[in-house]
Design a protein around this nucleic acid. Structure first.
Lengths: 117, 117
DNA sequence: TCAACGTTTCAAGGATTATTGAAATATGGA
DNA sequence: TCCATATTTCAATAATCCTTGAAACGTTGA
């Protein structure tokens, strides 16, 4: 992931509806969700949702696939983890001590119910 | 870091000049850099730089401190690593397999000269 | 073929964000 | 005190982004 892509991804995630879409799709996993289900859960209009999905698509954060009348959206884990990596390299570059707590504390485990935010 | 803060931080990083400021400040470390030096290196006007520094400050990504006539800016590592953690928890939540490569590949080491991007 | 469904596209307007240059503020030295 | 330096603030404009509703598109089943 280069700087240009990272800027696009940061921009895509810097909007409430879009961040919520990504959060939902991460939870939904590889099965994804139909645009209509997302719109319903987030209580946004179809056209507004479509606008935001297109933004996420432009940033490479989601993929889509038609299934009958619905269009199923899935999160693109590669882009998401590419972004984490970009941020960590920027964050750690020359200053490893800063990110070590991140890997130690948050390192890739499912979040537990009693996990403090 | 809650969602609102994360959105603010993503927004702050989604602009070329601001991302470059953060990158520079990360490299500069705890010593930080004077606003003037940043402006000179990035070739932006003083007032434009000031605008972007204020945005970064609002997002909690930088701190400042006057030193004689200069104002020294430093990156706020806590916010930066908080953001990484937010992203990883969203990214990994329920899907640990996705982020493991990140921790394995990028985990907090200084970037080597021959390190492929 | 037709109608209903799920979704996207389009155009318009409002809201937010970025850039610019001039003026204001704070500091330090002569 | 006065001047130069370093930076911020302000107002105006330009650019970008978000929302809305209407219309268009593709798909399915009758």
């Amino acid at each position: 992931m280069d700087e240009r892509q990272a800027i696009g991804a940061f921009g895509a995630l810097s909007q409430e509806t879009r961040l919520q879409i990504i959060r939902m799709l991460v939870v939904a996993g590889p099965e994804g969700m139909a645009a209509g289900s997302i719109a319903e859960k987030l209580d946004v209009s179809a056209s507004n949702l479509s606008f935001h999905l297109k933004e996420l698509d432009r940033a490479g954060l989601v993929g889509q696939q038609r299934e009958a009348r619905s269009i199923i959206y899935t999160v693109n884990y590669d882009t998401l983890s590419g972004l984490v990596r970009f941020l960590m390299e920027d964050c750690c570059s020359g200053h490893p001590e800063v990110c070590l707590p991140v890997t130690a504390a948050a390192a890739c485990r499912p979040r537990a119910k009693d996990d403090p935010q």
